[in-house]
Simulated assay, not measured.
Amino acid sequence: MLFPQPIKYTEAPKLMAVLKEEEGKVKIQEFPADSVSEKAGLKKDDIILALDDTKVESIDDVKIFLLYKKKGDTATVRVMRERFLLGPVEKTFTVKF
C-alpha cells in the first residue's frame, strides 16, 4: 500500500496545435515547432469541424478523440478556412501522429 507499482500507460498522440474555444467552435491559434498538424496543411485560424467524421464542438471533444489513437495512426481533420474576399471554404487534411 505504501509503495504501489507504477502503472504503465501509452501517452495519447497530440494534434500539436494551440486551440481556442469560441462560441461552440474550436479554432487553431498557433503551432509549436515541428507540428504534425502544420505539416499536414492546417493553418492558424482554421476552425476544426470534425476528426474522422466525429463532430468537434469543444476542446474536450478533441482530447477524447485522441485518447483512442496511437502513435503512427492517422486522422482526417475537416476544417473551415476563411479566405480573403472569397469567403469560407471547407477543407480536409490527413494528420499522421
Rank of each mutant, 00 (worst) to 15 (best):
D52E: 13
E57Y: 05
K96L: 06
S35P: 10
A17V: 09
E38P: 07
D73F: 09
V62M: 01
Y68T: 13
E82F: 12
D45W: 05
E22G: 00
E21W: 03
D34H: 14
V89P: 03
A12M: 06
S58E: 04
I47C: 01
V95K: 04
V26T: 03
L19Y: 01
R78Y: 01
K14Y: 06
R78G: 01
F97N: 08
K20R: 07
K27L: 09
V95A: 04
V26M: 02
I28Y: 07
A75Q: 03
L66S: 02
D46H: 07
A50F: 05
D34Y: 14
G41A: 08
M16R: 09
T54V: 12
T10G: 00
V89K: 15
K55R: 10
F3N: 11
V79M: 11
D60S: 05
E57P: 00
E22A: 06
E57S: 09
L42I: 09
F3S: 14
Y9C: 04
V56W: 01
V95C: 07
K43R: 15
K25D: 07
D52R: 10
K20F: 01
I7E: 13
E23A: 12
F97M: 06
T92W: 01
P4F: 07
P32Q: 11
P6F: 04
A17F: 04
L49S: 09
K8F: 08
M1K: 10
E38D: 08
I28T: 06
E82H: 09
A75I: 14
M1Q: 10
F84D: 14
L15Q: 05
E23C: 00
K44V: 12
K71S: 13
L85V: 14
M16W: 06
F3K: 10
P32C: 12
T94W: 08
K27H: 07
K55I: 13
T92P: 00
K27C: 02
F65M: 07
Y68F: 14
L49H: 03
V62P: 00
K14T: 12
K71M: 09
